Simulated assay, not measured.
Amino acid sequence: MNVVRVQSLLSGLWAGLLLAVGGVSAPSLFAVLERQAAGAGAGQIFQMEARISLGMAVVLFVLERRRVRDLVEEGQSTSAMSATLLMALGALFLTVFGGFVLHPMIQAAKAGQPTALSFGALHGISAGLYWAKTLLVLVLAWRLSAR
């Protein structure tokens, strides 16, 4: 199986995961559970998603580096910083920032500890970054499937 097909499959699965978590799972929890329990459940789901996203971004990064290296070894002139690589790195950054920087701040704000921003502001920023990551991964999957 060639590298681009694997990248296309992984990015498509990743995009599906992000859409399912953000568009189905989290809203469904708030539709059927009490707000505090739904928030706790959604927090767990998003933490699991962040770990999976971290792994997906790293695998896609490594596969893209391999693909570019193979092209260079074949004598083709190509940039080491491909659009695929930049999108994978962008999604990786958004995952790390949202899941491992903002999430602890949200937890602290929810617990009543002082934070630079309110719970609502942190939640809004986190949601915006999540959907930006989702859009980035959707574009990545779209571009890879066109190869």
Rank of each mutant, 00 (worst) to 15 (best):
L13K: 04
V59N: 07
P114I: 11
L33K: 15
R69W: 08
T95Q: 00
T115M: 08
G22E: 07
A91R: 01
L33M: 15
E49Q: 11
V3Y: 04
V96D: 02
G128M: 11
W14L: 00
G12A: 12
T95N: 03
R66N: 00
Q113T: 06
L117P: 00
V32L: 14
A146E: 11
G41A: 07
L117I: 10
S28W: 15
V68K: 01
E34S: 15
K110R: 14
K110A: 14
S77T: 07
L17F: 11
A127S: 14
A26G: 04
R69T: 07
L29T: 10
L117Q: 10
L102T: 08
V68S: 02
L92D: 00
L144W: 03
G22C: 14
F61L: 04
A57W: 01
V59S: 00
I125L: 08
V62Q: 06
W14I: 03
A132W: 08
G75D: 08
T78F: 06
V62M: 12
A111L: 13
F93Y: 09
E73Q: 15
G41H: 03
E64N: 03
E74T: 06
G98L: 09
L33W: 15
L29D: 01
L138M: 10
G39H: 04
E34W: 13
L135E: 03
L92C: 03
F46G: 02
M1W: 07
A42Y: 08
L138R: 05
L144Y: 04
L71W: 13
G128D: 15
A38D: 09
A146P: 00
G43C: 06
Q76F: 05
A88K: 01
R67W: 11
S53A: 10
I52Q: 07
V4P: 04
L63T: 02
I52C: 08
I45C: 12
F46M: 03
L136M: 05
A111I: 09
P114S: 13
H103V: 08
A121I: 12
V21S: 10
G39E: 09
R143H: 05
L18P: 03
Q113K: 15
F119L: 15
A38V: 09
F93M: 10
A127W: 05
G41W: 01
S8T: 09
D70T: 07
S53T: 04
A141S: 11
A57N: 01
V137S: 01
L140Q: 05
T84V: 07
L140R: 01
S77V: 09
Q47N: 09
L19Y: 13
G75Y: 03
Q107R: 14
